[in-house]
């Protein structure tokens, strides 16, 4: 049964690929992509998009982790609720408004775009860091403390490793949101694949729209896959075994 299903799956996949190929040909996508006047732009937009995502994610991760960690320290536990609420407000503002806001004091270009993307990506990371660390069983921390582990080591050796998979889920969500939102960055002059998509829409050129949309989707899928791999690399085998039980 399983084997038949697998074969069928593969067959369907081939069918879909062929179908997409035919559609791509029909709408003129292939022609567009190999056009020497067009494809350098696709590559440039792709790079712009990638750079927006990588930079903003790197900074958002640092800030998100820091906020999450600080809010789980004894001294700040009391204000954790309030701070998370404020951060989550950032998420409820529509992405366009955040971009507009960023532009209003950072001008146009890459800088405000990255700034807006950071604001947008901090929440899932901070929230999951907080939740992940809180979910570490208190007796583990108690044991570590009772054995004479200093607080910073408890954080690095016990709390963070045991919270890694939850944090990673937050990171993944942030990354997907980020890649999608970065498509709006062209509105404030930061370029990216959004340029192709939106001009494709306004010019009613399907092939141009697809030349932007497909790489964005591709980027999101690859990012998701990389997160999966990252999980295998940084989540301790002991924890994966424990969750299987």
């Amino acid at each position: 049964m399983g084997i038949i299903f697998k074969k069928l799956n593969r067959f369907l996949l081939i069918l879909i690929l062929m179908g997409t190929g035919i559609i791509a040909e029909r709408v003129g996508l292939i022609e567009y992509v190999i056009d020497p006047n067009e494809y350098p732009f696709i590559i440039i937009f792709f790079w712009q998009h990638l750079i927006l995502v990588v930079y903003s994610m790197a900074i958002a991760t640092i800030i998100g982790l820091a906020v999450g960690i600080i809010l789980t320290r004894k001294r700040f536990k009391k204000i954790a609720g309030v701070v998370m609420y404020i951060i989550s407000l950032g998420q409820t503002i529509p992405s366009l408004a955040v971009l507009a806001l960023a532009m209003s004091f950072l001008g146009i270009g890459t800088k405000p775009a990255i700034f807006a993307l950071i604001i947008y990506s901090i929440l899932p990371i901070a929230r999951n860091t907080l939740a992940g660390i809180i979910a570490v069983p208190p007796y583990l921390v108690n044991a570590a403390k009772g054995m004479g582990m200093p607080a910073w080591r408890i954080l690095l050796e016990i709390e963070l490793p045991n919270a890694t998979s939850v944090i990673l889920t937050g990171f993944r969500v942030a990354m997907i949101i980020n890649i999608g939102t970065a498509a709006l960055a062209f509105l404030i002059g930061a370029g990216g694949l959004g340029d192709l998509i939106f001009s494709g829409i306004s010019l009613m050129r399907t092939e141009q729209l697809l030349a932007g949309a497909i790489p964005v989707t591709f980027m999101a899928l690859v990012a998701d896959f990389l997160c999966e791999i990252l999980g295998l690399l940084i989540v301790s085998k002991g924890l994966r075994l424990a969750s299987e039980h």
Binding site: P137, Y139, L140, N142, A143, E157, I158, N162, L239, A242
Partner: peptide
């Protein structure tokens, strides 16, 4: 400790 409390992420 009573809960044993071995660190699951460590061997």
């Amino acid at each position: 400790i009573q809960e044993i409390g071995l660190f699951p992420n460590k061997t």
